[in-house]
Amino acid sequence: MSLTARLLLALMIFERFCVQKGIVHTEIEQFVEYLWQWPAINGPDEFNPWENSRPHLVNYGLGDEIHKEVLSNLEAKGVSEQSFRDIVSGVVEILWGNFWGAPDDDGSFRMLRQVVEAAKVDPLPSITPFKFSRFLDNSGWGQRPTVSDYTFWKACRGYA
């Protein structure tokens, strides 16, 4: 699977985790919607404004502290901050760990695995929608999805 497919699969797992645990916060909504924009980004004219508008949870995934309101929400739902950080950082590192260097197949797969293991969601999302987005294409990023591919991927988000 391409880096883009791994990101979206990890993001779907994160969404399911939040739904299954009852974790709701505007920062989570902003994070999810922001990262779902990634497949539609086309070139530096779109990338730079997108990257510069990243929400706090992206920075949290890169090592910043969590906001107190989110932490309170996690505590109220019995979710440890460490498991939440493992999931968020795994999602974030699939992209940010590959933006400014050579695509890291093993590292990005390791981050996806970290998300799967930390989230413990059941059922896991299907990988079938992403089978044509291959790491072998476009230097690890996969072929740019068509509008219908992107629409289909978003429709597969089901929160089971």
Results as ranks from 00 to 15, higher is better:
residue 2 S to C: 10
residue 2 S to G: 10
residue 3 L to T: 02
residue 4 T to D: 03
residue 5 A to L: 00
residue 5 A to P: 02
residue 6 R to W: 00
residue 8 L to V: 08
residue 11 L to M: 10
residue 12 M to W: 12
residue 13 I to A: 03
residue 14 F to C: 14
residue 16 R to Q: 13
residue 16 R to G: 06
residue 18 C to R: 09
residue 20 Q to R: 12
residue 21 K to Q: 13
residue 22 G to Y: 11
residue 22 G to M: 13
residue 24 V to A: 06
residue 25 H to Q: 07
residue 25 H to T: 06
residue 26 T to Y: 12
residue 27 E to W: 12
residue 28 I to P: 15
residue 28 I to Q: 03
residue 30 Q to M: 01
residue 34 Y to S: 05
residue 37 Q to V: 00
residue 38 W to N: 12
residue 38 W to M: 11
residue 38 W to E: 02
residue 40 A to S: 11
residue 40 A to G: 08
residue 40 A to M: 13
residue 42 N to K: 12
residue 43 G to Y: 14
residue 43 G to R: 13
residue 44 P to V: 07
residue 44 P to A: 06
residue 45 D to Y: 06
residue 46 E to I: 08
residue 47 F to S: 05
residue 47 F to R: 11
residue 48 N to L: 10
residue 49 P to K: 15
residue 49 P to M: 10
residue 50 W to N: 13
residue 52 N to Y: 02
residue 53 S to Y: 02
residue 54 R to H: 02
residue 56 H to Y: 15
residue 56 H to F: 06
residue 56 H to K: 14
residue 60 Y to P: 01
residue 61 G to W: 00
residue 62 L to Q: 13
residue 63 G to C: 05
residue 63 G to R: 03
residue 65 E to Y: 10
residue 65 E to P: 09
residue 66 I to G: 11
residue 66 I to F: 11
residue 67 H to C: 14
residue 67 H to A: 03
residue 67 H to Y: 09
residue 67 H to F: 04
residue 68 K to T: 15
residue 70 V to H: 02
residue 71 L to P: 04
residue 71 L to E: 01
residue 71 L to W: 06
residue 72 S to F: 07
residue 72 S to N: 07
residue 75 E to G: 03
residue 77 K to G: 03
residue 79 V to N: 12
residue 80 S to L: 11
residue 80 S to G: 09
residue 81 E to N: 05
residue 82 Q to D: 09
residue 83 S to T: 06
residue 84 F to D: 01
residue 87 I to W: 09
residue 88 V to W: 00
residue 88 V to F: 08
residue 90 G to T: 01
residue 92 V to F: 03
residue 93 E to G: 04
residue 94 I to P: 05
residue 94 I to F: 05
residue 95 L to P: 00
residue 96 W to K: 03
residue 98 N to Y: 06
residue 98 N to Q: 12
residue 102 A to F: 14
residue 102 A to H: 15
residue 103 P to T: 14
residue 104 D to V: 05
residue 105 D to S: 09
residue 106 D to E: 07
residue 107 G to Q: 07
residue 107 G to M: 05
residue 109 F to K: 01
residue 110 R to L: 02
residue 110 R to G: 00
residue 111 M to L: 00
residue 112 L to I: 11
residue 113 R to H: 05
residue 114 Q to P: 02
residue 117 E to D: 09
residue 117 E to Q: 06
residue 118 A to D: 00
residue 118 A to R: 03
residue 122 D to Q: 14
residue 122 D to N: 15
residue 122 D to A: 12
residue 123 P to K: 10
residue 124 L to E: 09
residue 125 P to Y: 02
residue 126 S to E: 10
residue 133 S to A: 13
residue 134 R to I: 08
residue 136 L to Y: 03
residue 136 L to T: 01
residue 137 D to C: 15
residue 138 N to Q: 15
residue 139 S to D: 05
residue 141 W to E: 04
residue 141 W to S: 11
residue 141 W to P: 05
residue 146 T to A: 04
residue 149 D to E: 14
residue 150 Y to Q: 07
residue 150 Y to L: 09
residue 150 Y to E: 15
residue 151 T to L: 11
residue 153 W to I: 13
residue 156 C to S: 12
residue 157 R to A: 05
residue 158 G to H: 08
